[in-house]
Design a protein around this nucleic acid. Structure first.
Lengths: 155, 155
DNA sequence: CATGAGGGTTTGGTTTTCCTACCCACTGGC
DNA sequence: GCCAGTGGGTAGGAAAACCAAACCCTCATG
């Protein structure tokens, strides 16, 4: 009577994707980070159908990624602004953009010029020591009993 | 007779998500980067239904993110390994993991210990100058006529 | 020859998504 | 007042995606 359904791996990536992994969700966030905060403009720029956009915005507000801010009364209208948690996803978007630039686009539609003068190219570093993080320079520790990197293990 | 449907913003993030934005896709990639390369194990660890997994694997192979490598004849069996392009997505997963750790999980299921001794926490830097990338330290340049950061513009 | 593992495909039913249209509150022009 | 226009949604039905379970095929081993 045990183990009716094996659970998938406990994982923060999966948790994060349960919030931002739906279609259009990261594009909606992109718009708010670009400074586009209104329903109609977000719908136009992402291509999301209006009812889907309504659902995504509601979920993102509930998850604390966006907040709904009134910008006028009579009639009350709201705009959607990223919370600090939402802004923390900006690096994810930056890396996805760069990956798309490298592997899918002929000409990158958008380029950022850093204050140092170069076009922005991101590098992932260890916050503690400043070294670039590379494959094999860190060792994983699974904190969940019954699991290892390769899969479930016996107790 | 022009402009029947407005196109969404041309964007490499959207392009990237058209490849890796489907449900389970990034979890499948996670498994292959963890060293789990076989169909059954990937299905178990991600929770993806088998037919969906078949579709995702095929798409990822076509997109050049994974490759199908035979590991035995009689019967021929294949495993799925990340290509260089697939490994380039590892930072995206790392950032999603950290975001999930910070905002959704009580205890991070998985921690990486960097060679320097600290638990890994990623920092995004400018590859050219080494400075941490922060909000406002770069200016965008849209390369597509008819578009700006805030939306479509007149020609 | 039965059993079992690996790697799928098929079937059939349930959700999601998508699309078009409509609604409501208000404003500004006439 | 009447009309069109804007912002932010709902409603309803068709299309696509998803899911669980069952099935299939190839080979290996006992």
């Amino acid at each position: 009577m045990t183990a009716s359904k094996p659970q998938p791996r406990p994982c923060s990536i999966a948790d994060a994707l349960s919030v931002v992994g739906d279609k259009y969700t990261l594009l909606v966030l992109r718009e708010t980070l670009f400074g586009v905060h209104r329903f109609d403009a977000i719908a136009r720029n992402t291509g999301a159908p209006r009812d889907i956009l309504t659902a995504r915005l509601r979920k993102l507000v509930e998850a604390g990624v966006l907040e709904k801010v009134p910008y006028q009364d009579r009639p009350v209208r709201h705009e959607y602004r990223p919370t600090p948690a939402g802004r923390e996803l900006q690096p994810v978007l930056l890396l996805l953009k760069e990956w798309g630039d490298r592997h899918l686009a002929e000409t990158p539609p958008l380029v950022w010029e850093h204050d140092c003068g170069a076009d922005v190219e991101a590098q992932i570093c260890c916050r503690a020591c400043g070294e670039e993080l590379r494959r094999g320079s860190a060792t994983p520790h699974y904190q969940v009993p019954g699991w290892s990197l390769s899969g479930p293990v016996e107790a």
